[in-house]
């Protein structure tokens, strides 16, 4: 990939003579396949296949989950559900922190805005050493 010299040399391709035939058949194949996957029967077949898989695997999934939960409980380890619940709580906390961050920003901006309006114009600026009027209050 990174070796430019290596990339530029022409390598032998035994399939090259057949490219024309391949490309000519591609278009027809593509059209036929697109038509097939767009049909109601394809939708029905894939739906049935998926449903069949989910129905057949459900008892195994449930049994595995049950036994895994029991094993983890025996070993005093948290289950997948407990870890998931913890992660959800972390996300909620993070969101609360983000809200607080937003509120703090708003407060800081409001304070800065008030300070800016209370500052006297530059022409009437107090002499060096005197605190500005806003600060003296």
């Amino acid at each position: 990939m990174n070796d430019g010299k290596e990339e530029n040399k022409k390598t032998f391709d035994p399939f090259e003579p057949f490219r024309g035939i391949r490309d000519a058949s591609f278009e027809a194949m593509s059209k036929a396949m697109i038509e097939a996957v767009n049909s109601e029967s394809y939708a029905q077949a894939t739906g049935a296949l998926l449903d069949c898989y989910l129905t057949a695997s459900a008892p195994f999934r449930e049994a595995l989950e049950k036994s895994m939960t029991q094993v983890l409980q025996q070993l005093s380890l948290p289950s997948r559900q407990e870890v998931t619940n913890l992660a959800v709580r972390f996300s909620n906390l993070e969101m609360r922190l983000d809200d607080m961050d937003a509120k703090l920003d708003r407060i800081a901006n409001a304070v800065a805005a008030i300070a800016a309006t209370r500052q006297p114009p530059p022409a009437e600026a107090p002499t060096r050493g005197r605190a500005p009027a806003a600060r003296r209050r």
């Binding site: 939708a43 695997s57 459900a58």
Partner: peptide, 15 residues
């Protein structure tokens, strides 16, 4: 493909 006649979305997500 996802028409309710053929595709049970709840079953997929529950699994």
């Amino acid at each position: 493909w996802t028409d309710e006649k053929y595709f049970n979305v709840d079953k997929v997500i529950d699994a």
